[in-house]
């Protein structure tokens, strides 16, 4: 769970201008067998990062030393497919703290917020523009201010507001954990059970 605080992040970005990237591409099913949360970063985008021979695929962006940073800028419709949270762990474990797209799958969005990874939705136009900028100049920095809910492209100063559920925002800002919150309301849960004739 998210015990990681998120407030302001300034970073370069890694561009992944592909649409409809699903969780199986983020972390292929054959790597789900682990029973801990760590280490999934090694297999992030596994089948794109490595050739069939096991050699790193030089053409893939994560293997390109020119690009780096804590922000992943993806194409539209990111994270669809199976509900595996491993996809988020892999992205987080690899070192990303925010993902930018113009559309995320629901479960992926939830899983991200629960694990300290900030999903930011921007317009298609801005997304394409941002990708082009990064491809042209990999040193392009962005600034994410969670408190203000703004994403700023530093070289141009262009700034947009992004949406986030206010409760999740509080949690991320404070590094608070949903489970801590719920454990604190045990009495309410028990009295719900007593009143509601819960099915056994």
């Amino acid at each position: 769970m998210a015990k990681v605080k998120f407030d302001i992040l300034e970073s370069t970005c890694v561009p992944l201008p592909l649409e409809n990237v699903d969780t199986d591409q983020i972390i292929p099913a054959r790597f789900l067998s682990a029973t801990s949360r760590e280490g999934f970063g090694n297999n992030l985008f596994r089948d794109w990062r490595y050739l069939k021979t096991g050699e790193p695929n030089e053409k893939f962006v994560l293997n390109n030393p020119v690009f780096g940073g804590k922000v992943l800028v993806t194409g539209k419709n990111f994270g669809s497919g199976s509900s595996r949270e491993h996809a988020v762990w892999a992205i987080f474990d690899y070192g990303f703290r925010a993902v930018i797209s113009s559309f995320f799958a629901d479960i992926f969005m939830n899983n991200s917020l629960n694990n300290g990874l900030l999903p930011i939705v921007i317009s298609d136009e801005l997304l394409i523009k941002l990708q082009e900028m990064i491809l042209k100049d990999p040193a392009t920095m962005v600034k994410i201010d969670l408190e203000k809910q703004t994403l700023t492209i530093l070289p141009t100063g262009e700034s947009v507001k992004f949406a986030i559920n206010p409760y999740k925002k509080e949690c991320l800002l404070k590094g608070l954990d949903d489970i801590d919150f719920l454990l604190g309301m045990k009495d309410m849960i028990t009295s719900y059970e007593n009143n509601k004739r819960v099915a056994k």
Partner: peptide
């Protein structure tokens, strides 16, 4: 369907 953090949440609190 839920993610693993939520599995933990439901195990811990049934909510």
């Amino acid at each position: 369907g839920i993610g693993t953090s939520e599995v933990e949440m439901v195990l811990a609190t049934q909510c």
